[in-house]
Amino acid sequence: MSHSPIDFKGSNFTFLVLYLYDSDHAIIRKAIQKKVDNAPTFLRHAPIIVNVSMLSSKVNWNHIQHAILETGLSIVGVSGCRDEKLKQVIMNSGLAILNEGAIDNSYSNIYISKSIPDQIKGKSKTRLISSPVRSGQQIYAKNTDLVIINSVSEGAELIADGNIHVYGSMRGRALAGVDGDESCQIFCTHLLAELLSIAGQYWMMEQIPSNCLGKTSRLYLESGVLTLQNLI
Score class of each variant (00 low, 15 high):
148 I>E: 04
219 L>V: 12
54 M>Q: 11
115 S>D: 07
197 S>W: 06
47 P>C: 02
169 S>I: 12
3 H>A: 11
116 I>Y: 07
209 P>A: 05
164 I>P: 01
16 L>D: 11
116 I>P: 00
92 N>E: 13
178 V>G: 00
54 M>S: 09
196 L>K: 01
54 M>N: 07
158 L>M: 08
207 Q>S: 06
93 S>K: 03
98 L>Q: 02
195 L>Q: 12
210 S>F: 13
123 K>W: 03
104 D>W: 09
14 T>D: 15
82 R>Y: 05
205 M>P: 00
212 C>I: 11
56 S>T: 15
198 I>W: 04
199 A>N: 04
225 V>A: 13
133 V>K: 06
202 Y>F: 11
69 L>T: 10
91 M>E: 14
2 S>R: 11
201 Q>F: 15
51 N>C: 01
66 H>A: 06
182 E>I: 05
16 L>R: 06
167 Y>P: 03
131 S>R: 15
134 R>G: 02
172 G>F: 07
204 M>N: 12
188 C>R: 01
1 M>P: 03
68 I>C: 01
117 P>S: 04
192 L>Q: 12
119 Q>T: 03
169 S>E: 14
212 C>T: 14
220 Y>K: 11
157 E>A: 05
66 H>F: 10
79 S>E: 14
214 G>K: 14
98 L>V: 02
161 D>F: 03
105 N>M: 14
191 L>W: 07
93 S>I: 00
220 Y>T: 07
120 I>Q: 03
42 F>K: 09
106 S>I: 03
102 A>R: 13
205 M>E: 14
23 S>D: 15
49 I>R: 08
153 S>Q: 15
17 V>T: 15
180 G>Q: 06
40 P>R: 11
47 P>S: 12
83 D>N: 08
97 I>L: 10
80 G>H: 01
70 E>Q: 09
57 S>I: 04
126 T>E: 12
139 I>N: 07
